[in-house]
Design a protein around this nucleic acid. Structure first.
Lengths: 362, 362
DNA sequence: CTGAAAGCGCTAACAG
DNA sequence: CTGTTAGCGCTTTCAG
């Protein structure tokens, strides 16, 4: 029944194949079959030798490895991924890699992934929901081993559910909603806010302004919360006004331009992140307000620039690189350990004392 | 000949398959076969409908598309890649994403890739040859459509040749060696150096120091070249000393700490990049040297920070984002157009006048 | 315009 | 310890 002319058939096939290969930019990639033949074993044995699986004669394996090296054999990840269902790829969806905070996180994530033999694909969402959705779909098509996202709020409910049900491990970099199915890893933002308040209070300040982000922004809100929590302790005579603006350099600049000229007894400012603090710095210079002589300033993040700013910025340090590292560790653990319950990690913070805050003038 | 019990055979197979699928974290992914069945066509027709290929009845296609959408069908990229040999993945190998320059490039590259439906995998090499080699191998296993590298010099000759022969399009972000097989895209570094010299000369400066990178660093050397070229024009009475150091903030700082105290008539400094210029800024503040009153300073790159530094840095602007964009455009063009000859693009530069350079004091 | 069938290169049972 | 074999999910001739 048509299974006769095996020889001529396979000859045809081989012909077609060769042609294809040659047209493929001359890439004469050695395939498993080639090294198997060259080593005088079947491709199964070759595969086993290379995958490091047990059950292979040491000498045989040696021979295979030798041939593979000589032929510069590179396994085809697609073929492997197709059968194993694993991709060795991790998706990293952040707002914008140009934000130094995310660059740090990305580097931490990439280093951890590299160590584990995985790749990370970079996605800049700008927190735009359409983009974010496309990224997630694209990543799932690639069977990624996991996804790291700085925030999932841009996604609508059904989309979130579908992601959760897909079984792909997800780690979020901002605060989780109660019983969300996703893991999270983030700095102790509340404590950071608290530390800033405590430090400034100990310096004698009593009238504060806190520059926060626009409305509800998970992490920034937590910082405000901790800050106010300290100031509103029983018996405290401190007062603080919270000003909302963009969580960027420009945002901080604009708010400060309005605030600084008529600051009404305010002697200390806590900016929700360093970028905003730099905006305050710029506005202060322009307006002739001296920092820290006239106003003390504390930031949050401890980006590299903080130490070289003028004056060097006192700020709350959060472990950005470690955040990225931890995120991929969690992803990989979730993958291998069949871990089903989401995990939540909180990294410590501490205040880095530099020159932008000083004792209140008596 | 064993082709009898088709029914029971396929039943077995299906059983095994179902089990596998279920164990796979409950991911009930719709496969092409499912949507084909659901639409009452064969998977061939389904495939054609979805791939947008011609030769499908409009109504049929419509039906397939509808079913696919309803079932949230996502093609498996591995399966597709395995047969097409294309991955829709671009590799980006840079020194360190935390360097703002590369962050800009990366964003440009990612945006261009996103627009073309491709992903970019991020690789931080630190210019370390072992890491770079591993990245390249890993990328080739993934059949990437192309690779962008900031420099290939960390690779030894044989490795470079193998890369070239593999047929994977490569775009370098630094100057090419004569008849290198790789494409390049970079800013007009020579002209940038020239512009810096011209600007400072017009301000009346005659004694210069140029802070360059360590020894031969492609792009930085070109900047030095352009700078010196201008100053050494016939009839010029200018003189310049070139100082080598690390091409980083620390590098600039250290060199400046030595240079500034006893600067011996030097009134203007040209730093090979902004990071080094910031190092100079810091050293100047510490040493009580005023910029631009005592010494003028010009940088190169125009990173975001340049505009908010104190004083705002006059610098040579290069189109970092566009560099990344152009690189992936070139990659994609090379892929589709079967373009064989390497392409070389040079992007323009211009000087951005801010506050760190001023007329020489008479 | 649509169906049947042959693989892409590799892994993973299952036998031997 | 090693060989056989059945696919992973999709694209792509080749027939009809």
């Amino acid at each position: 029944m048509g299974t006769r002319h095996i020889d001529s058939d396979s000859a045809d096939v081989n012909n077609r194949k060769r042609l294809q290969n040659e047209s493929k930019a001359g890439s004469s990639v050695a395939k498993l079959r080639d090294i198997a033949a060259s080593a005088g074993v079947t491709i199964a044995t070759a595969s086993r030798s290379l995958s490091g699986a047990y059950g292979v004669n040491a000498a045989t394996r040696e021979r295979v490895l030798e041939v593979a090296a000589r032929l510069h054999y590179r396994p085809n990840r697609f073929a492997r991924g197709l059968v194993t269902g694993r991709s060795q790829i991790i998706g990293l969806i952040i707002s914008d890699i140009r934000n130094p905070f995310f660059a740090d996180v990305a580097r931490g994530a990439e280093d951890a992934a590299f160590a584990a033999g995985s790749d990370v694909v970079l996605c800049n969402s700008d927190l735009n929901s359409e983009r974010q959705k496309r990224y997630i779909h694209s990543l799932m098509e690639k069977n990624v081993d996991g996804i790291i996202m700085n925030s999932i709020t841009a996604l609508d409910r059904p989309e979130q559910n579908r992601l959760a049900e897909s079984g792909v491990p997800v780690v979020l970099l901002n605060s989780h909603e109660r019983n969300s199915p996703f893991s999270t890893v983030l700095a102790d933002n509340v404590r950071g806010g608290w530390l800033a308040a405590e430090y400034l209070s100990n310096l004698g300040h009593r009238r504060f302004a806190h520059l926060s982000g626009p409305g509800r922004h998970g992490n920034l809100s937590m910082r405000a919360k901790g800050f106010l929590q300290y100031l509103r302790k029983p018996g405290s005579d401190a007062s603080a006004s919270v000003l909302h603006g963009g969580h960027t350099f420009e945002g901080g600049y604009e708010v400060a331009r309005k605030l600084l000229p008529d600051r009404n007894e305010i002697t200390a400012i806590f900016a929700a992140n360093d970028a905003m603090a730099f905006g305050v710095l710029k506005a202060a210079i322009e307006l002739g307000v001296r920092i820290p002589e006239d106003v003390s300033l504390v930031g949050f993040d401890d980006v590299e620039l903080a130490s070289i700013a003028h004056p060097p910025l006192t700020t709350i340090h959060q472990a950005k690189y470690e955040l990225g590292q931890a995120a991929v560790d969690m992803l990989l653990a979730a993958r291998s350990g069949k871990q089903t319950a989401p995990e939540h990690r909180v990294l410590g913070v501490h205040l880095v004392e530099r020159k932008s805050a000083a004792k209140v003038r008596s």
